[in-house]
Design a protein around this nucleic acid. Structure first.
Length: 289
DNA sequence: GTCCGTCAAGCAGGC
DNA sequence: GCCTGCTTGACGGAC
């Protein structure tokens, strides 16, 4: 089992998420510098992680900000491909597995074609990053988006929208969310696309769809056999000061024990989604100072 | 110099 | 109808 955290390290501190405002995109030199700083940030974080046995990391979605936007001013794959390749070599050498997690705006099943197409473009960006890094066990983790009052029809539309994009499907994994798509619904869509499903234990608790956590894992873990790579899971805990679904600074030890119990000794890599980033891994016994 | 609202983008749900 | 949660940096204007 490998443990990981997303996008930035609060201790060093370092980030992969430097960005700029859209109207600054035309400043090409500044943009290139910023992307190189993000890639350098990624390498620094990978090194810090490896020294502490942290073998999983989620690259921030703004590694190449606006990469999928029509206004992006140059061919980022040619310009930064060599740098990404180096970062990928480092990750492989250190044994760190990578992922990305496109945000809430990415909705391939959206009834508005322009929204769906924007989403596909963003997913293709993540796939190209992983291609350039030669990150063969990487995952692009995606929620299925809005249901638009018709879950069955939307799920069908999602599968049909994604099916032609084999370049993206090579990395894509679908994740349950806290209010719309349950573990079993996500597994069903994943099976239809022959891609893996990720269970988020916190989301599952809020939107279980009649399944225990163990039952959800029984369904989702085998979907990873299609890629012959280790399954992935997400864990986070409720922030007591926020409404249900708000992520806490750390992870509750009971939530962690519950996930381990549900796994029952089966192997998986676990992404810890906490506001405290790497600091939250202390709950799992990782040395994070 | 610091604070704060806004920025490409969408949805669902609580008030 | 508005605000918040998903996430959490940049940047311009107000003070």
């Amino acid at each position: 089992m490998r443990l990981g955290y997303p996008a930035q390290n609060l201790t060093i501190p370092e980030t992969t998420n430097r960005t700029l405002r859209m109207k600054s995109l035309r400043d090409v030199e500044r943009l290139k510098t910023l992307i190189r700083e993000n890639i350098t940030g990624l390498k620094n974080i990978l090194g810090w992680n490896a020294e502490r046995g942290i073998g999983l990391f989620r690259i921030g979605q703004d590694l190449v900000p606006f990469a999928s936007h029509p206004a992006f001013p140059y061919d980022w794959e040619s310009e930064h491909g060599g740098e990404l390749r180096e970062a990928g070599d480092l990750a492989r050498k250190l044994g760190v597995r990578l992922s990305m997690h496109p945000g809430q705006y990415i909705q391939p099943a959206n009834p508005r074609p322009e929204v769906a197409e924007r989403g596909i473009a963003e997913l293709r960006y993540t796939a190209r990053v992983f291609d350039l890094m030669c990150a063969h066990d990487a995952a692009t983790v995606l929620h299925m988006g809005g249901a638009h009052g018709d879950k069955l029809g939307t799920a069908t539309r999602f599968v049909e929208a994604m099916r032609p994009h084999v370049d993206i499907l090579g990395y894509l994994a679908l994740e349950n969310d806290e209010r719309t798509w349950t573990a079993s619904e996500v597994v069903e869509a994943s099976r239809a696309l022959n891609i893996p499903a990720i269970i988020d234990s916190f989301h599952h608790g809020l939107n279980p769809g009649g399944l225990t956590l163990r039952e959800a894992l029984d369904l989702s873990l085998p979907t990873w056999e299609t890629r012959a790579i280790r399954p992935k899971l997400h864990i986070s805990s409720q922030d007591p000061d926020k409404r249900p679904g708000g992520h806490a600074y750390s992870v509750n030890a009971r939530d962690w024990e519950e996930l381990l119990a549900a796994l029952g000794g089966r192997d998986a890599d676990v992404m810890v989604e906490a506001k405290g980033k790497e600091q939250a891994l202390a709950v799992m016994g990782v040395r994070v100072e």
